[in-house]
Design a binder for these strands. Structure first.
Length: 763
DNA sequence: CAGCCATATCTTTTT
DNA sequence: GATATGGCTG
C-alpha cells in the first residue's frame, strides 16, 4: 500500500511522468493539487530528485502555502527546499539578487495600482496629455498590456506610426518608465518583464537558474500571460522538464493579459509533450456538474472534454428570483441562517459569489443585521487602506527615500501646512536640479519662493532622518510605534472618535501585529523584506477555514476554492454577463464570462443556489435586468425555481423557504421536489411570465416608467455612442420592451444594441 | 492652506 | 451610491 494507490490511472500517469514536457488538462475538481503534490513526492522519494531543483509556481500565496503544506505531509524531508511561490514573488526573489545588472538598486520598491495611478497622473501633467481624452485608467491598461506582451516603450512607439493616440500612449509609457526608474520602483508587470530582461541579457544568470530549477511546475497555466510564458520557457529550455497544469475552461483573466493560447498551443510549442486529461470530478454532485457542463458546452473555442463524476445526483439547482437586491440578500442570508440553525452546515461551508465587488455591500448589511459572521474577500485589500498605506509610506520613505510617490503621500499627513503649491515649487526645483523629491526637500532652504513653508519642510525631513537613524537600534514594530507617536497619527484618530476612525486604529494595530509576526518568522528581518512581503499579498491569501464565517467574494477570487454550499447572486444580463460584454457584442468576451460562470458553478460541492433581482440599483440608477442568459443554458430538468411571494404583512418572512415554495408559474399546483412531471417547461414559463425576456433597460423601476420611449432616430440616421463614436443606424427591431438597434460605426463596425442601454444620440 | 460644497464620472474582474 | 475633482471661502 503506497500513497500512490489512491490515485486514478490518469492521475497516476501524470505523477509518474517526471521527465520532459507534460501538459495536464485538469478539469474543475479533478484533483490536480493532489496530482501535483504526489508528483513532487514521487520525484523526491522515488526518483531521488533533489528538492532544491524543484520549482512550483502557483497564482496566489495561499495556493503556494497550501501546496507546501500538503507536500510536507507526504514527504518525509526536504520540502522546505522546494521553491513554491507565485510568479511575482519568484521574480522578486531573483531580482533582489541581480537587478543591479539592469541598473536598478537592489532594494527597489514595488508599486501597486494606486502608486501607478499617481505616477501616470504626473506623466500626463508633464506631457500635457488631456486626461479628458486619454483616461489615466486606459493609458495604464495600455501600458500594462504592452508589458504583458513584453513590448517596451520604444517598440510600442515604432508600432504606432500614423496612429496618434498610440503614439501618445507610447510617449506616456516611456515617461512612466523613466519615473519608475528614478524612483527605483517596479510595478507588478515589471517584476516579470525585468526578470525576463535580466535572463536575456545575462546568459550566465539564466543558466544558473536553469540548473537550479531542473524541474518546473506551473499551476493555473491557462492564466499565464506572454511575459510569464517567456519566463517559464526560458527557465525550462535547458532541461525541458516542464509540467503545466490548467484548464482552458477556467481561463478568466484575459483582461489581465492571460493568453489562452499558452495552453491551447502547448503541444505545438512542445511537440514531444505528453498530454494527460483529468476528467473525473471528485468535488460536486452530478446535478451541479451537469449544470456546469450545460453552460460551458456553449463555448466554441475550447478543448473538447466532458467532466463526469461518480458522486450522487444530489439536490437540484435552486434558482431564486427576487424583487430587489435587498430581498435577494435577505433571502440568501436567511437561507444560510436556517442551514446553520438546522445544523446542516457551518457558516464556513457557505460562500456567496458575485460578479462585481459592489454587490457585497447589501449582503454585508444583512449579515450585520442578523449577527452572522462573514468575511469579504477582495474589494479593497487590507494594504490599500488609507491608514495602512500612510504608515507603509513612512516606512518606505525611511527605507528608501528615492520613492517620490511615497514621500509625497506622507509629507502632509498628518497636516503640516505643506500644500500643493509648495509641493509644486519643490517639484520644479527637483526637476531643474535633477534631484529626487526627497533630496530637493533637504535643500528647501535654497528654494527662495517657499518662504515660511521651508521651515515646515525641514521639520519633516528632520523627522524622517531621526527615525532613519534609529533604524539599526530598534525593531520594526518599535519603529512603527515611533512613527505613530511622532506624527500623532493615532492621536488624531482617537480625537476623531468616529466608528470609522476606531476601525482605522484597529487596522494600524493589525499592521503592527503583522510586523511582529514577520520578525518572529524570519531569521534576519529587514525593513525592505517586510515591505516586500506586504507588497505581494493578495486579499485571498488571508482566507483561512479556521474561522467559521460565511465567505463573500467575486467569482474571480473564488477560482481554486470549493464550498459545500455556493450561492451565486446577481444572475442578470447586464450584470453577469456584464453590460460591457453584451453591448460589445464580442463573442470572445462573452465566452470568457461564460467560463467565469462555469468556474462559479464548479465551486459548489453539495448544493448550488442561483439568484437574481428583478430590479437593482447600479451606480445610483435603478435598473431592471433580464435573467442571465447563462441560466437558460443550464438544462431545465436540473433546476428548481421559486416564486417571489410579496411581503403581505410587515414582519412576515419575505419568501418561503425552498421546500414549500411554489413554482414560478401562477398555477397553484405545488412542485414536488426532484420528481413529478417536468412542469417547468421553459416555453410555458416564458409565455406566462416574461421570464426569459430580453433586457429592457433604461426603465426606471422606481417611477414605474417601463414604457419604452419613442426613438428620436430612425434607419439611415447618424448617431453618436459614448464608446463607439459615430455611426449610421442600419436597422431597428421592436423587441417589445425595448428597441434593438443595429448601427454601423465608423471605427468599430456593425454592433447590435438595445436602445435603452446604448443611449444613442442623433446628430 | 484647509475645509466645505458642488459636479462629474464611474467599475467588471486583480497579482 | 460613492468617490474624485474643482471652485469657493475663511
Amino acid at each position: 500500500m503506497s500513497i500512490y494507490d489512491a490515485l486514478n490511472p490518469n492521475q497516476l500517469e501524470a505523477v509518474l511522468h517526471t521527465e520532459g514536457p507534460l501538459l495536464i488538462l485538469a478539469g474543475a475538481g479533478s484533483g490536480k493539487t493532489r496530482v501535483l503534490t504526489h508528483r513532487i513526492a514521487y520525484m523526491i522519494e522515488e526518483k531521488g530528485i533533489n528538492p532544491w531543483n524543484i520549482l512550483a509556481i502557483t497564482f496566489t500565496n495561499k495556493a503556494a502555502a497550501e501546496m507546501r503544506e500538503r507536500v510536507d505531509k507526504i514527504v518525509g524531508f526536504g520540502s522546505e527546499h522546494i521553491w513554491v511561490s507565485t510568479f511575482h514573488s519568484s521574480c522578486v526573489r531573483i531580482l533582489r539578487r541581480h537587478i543591479d545588472k539592469l541598473g536598478y538598486d537592489n532594494n527597489f520598491t514595488i508599486y501597486d495600482g494606486d502608486d501607478q495611478k499617481s505616477v501616470i497622473k504626473d506623466v500626463c501633467k508633464r506631457l500635457n496629455i488631456d486626461t479628458k481624452i486619454y483616461k489615466e485608467r486606459s493609458i495604464l491598461s495600455a501600458i500594462s498590456s504592452a508589458k504583458d506582451e513584453l513590448t517596451g516603450p520604444d517598440e510600442l512607439m515604432l508600432q504606432s506610426t500614423g496612429d496618434y493616440a498610440k503614439k501618445r500612449i507610447a510617449e506616456a509609457y516611456k515617461e512612466y518608465q523613466n519615473i519608475l526608474r528614478s524612483n527605483n520602483a517596479l510595478d507588478f508587470d515589471d517584476l516579470i518583464v525585468k526578470t525576463v530582461e535580466l535572463f536575456l541579457h545575462n546568459p550566465d544568470i539564466l543558466e544558473y537558474y536553469q540548473d537550479r530549477f531542473r524541474y518546473i511546475m506551473v499551476d493555473e497555466y491557462q492564466d499565464t500571460n506572454t511575459a510569464q510564458f517567456k519566463f517559464v520557457s526560458l527557465l525550462a529550455s535547458k532541461y525541458r522538464n516542464l509540467c503545466v497544469v490548467g484548464d482552458d475552461d477556467q481561463s478568466i483573466y484575459k483582461f489581465r493579459g492571460a493568453n489562452i493560447y499558452n495552453i491551447l498551443n502547448f503541444e505545438h510549442e512542445y511537440p514531444d509533450a505528453k498530454v494527460i486529461k483529468l476528467e473525473e470530478n471528485y468535488r460536486s454532485t452530478k446535478t451541479i456538474l451537469n449544470a456546469a457542463n450545460g453552460v460551458i458546452h456553449q463555448n466554441r473555442g475550447r478543448k473538447d472534454k466532458t467532466l463526469w463524476t461518480a458522486n450522487d445526483q444530489g439536490d437540484k439547482i435552486r434558482f431564486l428570483q427576487f424583487n430587489s437586491e435587498y430581498e435577494e440578500a435577505m433571502g440568501i442570508v436567511e437561507d444560510i441562517a436556517e442551514k446553520v440553525k438546522n445544523k446542516e452546515a457551518a457558516h464556513s461551508d457557505c460562500a456567496i459569489l458575485y460578479r462585481t465587488n459592489a454587490q457585497s455591500r447589501v449582503f454585508e448589511e444583512k449579515f450585520v443585521i442578523k449577527g452572522i459572521p462573514y468575511k469579504i474577500v477582495g474589494g479593497q485589500n487590507f494594504y490599500q487602506r488609507k491608514e495602512i498605506k500612510d504608515l507603509l509610506c513612512y516606512l518606505k520613505t525611511i527605507d528608501n527615500a528615492q520613492d517620490d510617490i511615497a514621500v509625497k503621500r506622507i509629507i502632509n499627513v498628518p497636516k503640516r501646512g505643506i500644500g500643493l503649491t509648495s509641493m509644486n515649487k519643490v517639484d520644479a526645483y527637483a526637476l531643474s536640479h535633477e534631484l529626487n523629491f526627497y533630496d530637493a526637500l533637504k535643500s528647501a532652504k535654497d528654494i527662495p519662493t517657499l518662504g515660511k513653508t521651508a521651515d515646515k519642510i525641514s521639520g519633516f525631513v528632520n523627522l524622517i532622518q531621526v527615525l532613519r537613524s534609529k533604524l539599526e537600534f530598534i525593531s520594526l514594530p518599535q519603529l512603527m510605534q515611533e512613527i505613530l507617536e511622532e506624527t500623532g497619527y493615532v492621536k488624531e484618530l482617537e480625537a476623531d472618535g468616529s466608528e470609522e476612525a476606531l476601525g482605522r486604529i484597529e487596522n494600524i494595530d493589525e499592521l503592527v501585529n503583522k510586523a511582529i509576526a514577520y520578525e518572529d518568522e524570519n531569521e534576519n528581518p529587514t525593513l525592505s523584506g517586510f515591505l516586500e512581503e506586504v507588497a505581494l499579498v493578495a486579499d485571498i491569501d488571508s482566507l483561512d477555514n479556521a474561522n467559521d464565517k460565511v465567505v463573500l467574494m467575486t467569482l474571480h477570487s473564488a477560482k481554486g476554492l470549493e464550498f459545500p454550499y455556493v450561492y451565486m447572486g446577481g444572475m442578470e444580463d447586464g450584470l453577469f454577463p456584464s453590460y460591457m460584454t453584451i453591448i460589445d457584442d464580442d463573442a470572445q468576451e462573452l465566452e470568457e464570462e461564460r467560463r467565469l460562470c462555469y468556474v462559479g458553478i464548479t465551486r459548489a460541492m453539495k448544493q448550488l443556489t442561483l439568484s437574481c433581482a428583478k430590479s437593482r440599483m447600479i451606480r445610483g440608477m435603478t435598473q431592471s435586468n433580464a435573467i442571465s442568459r447563462f441560466i437558460e443554458e443550464i438544462p431545465e430538468e436540473l433546476m428548481e425555481m421559486n416564486q417571489v411571494i410579496e411581503r403581505k404583512k410587515r414582519g412576515e418572512k419575505m419568501i418561503d423557504t425552498i421546500k414549500t415554495r411554489k413554482p414560478y408559474e401562477t398555477s397553484s399546483e405545488t412542485l414536488k421536489s426532484n420528481s413529478g412531471p417536468s412542469s417547468l417547461n421553459r416555453r410555458t414559463v416564458h409565455k406566462n411570465s416574461d421570464f426569459f425576456n430580453k433586457p429592457y433597460s433604461g426603465v426606471d423601476a422606481v417611477t414605474g416608467n417601463n414604457q419604452k420611449t419613442a426613438l428620436e432616430y430612425g434607419v439611415g440616421d447618424t448617431v453618436r455612442h459614448i464608446k463607439f463614436g459615430i455611426g449610421e443606424v442600419i436597422n431597428i427591431i421592436d423587441g417589445g420592451k425595448d428597441y434593438e438597434v443595429t448601427v454601423n460605426f465608423e471605427k468599430f463596425g456593425v454592433k447590435k444594441m438595445f436602445a435603452g442601454f446604448a443611449k444613442l444620440q442623433l446628430i
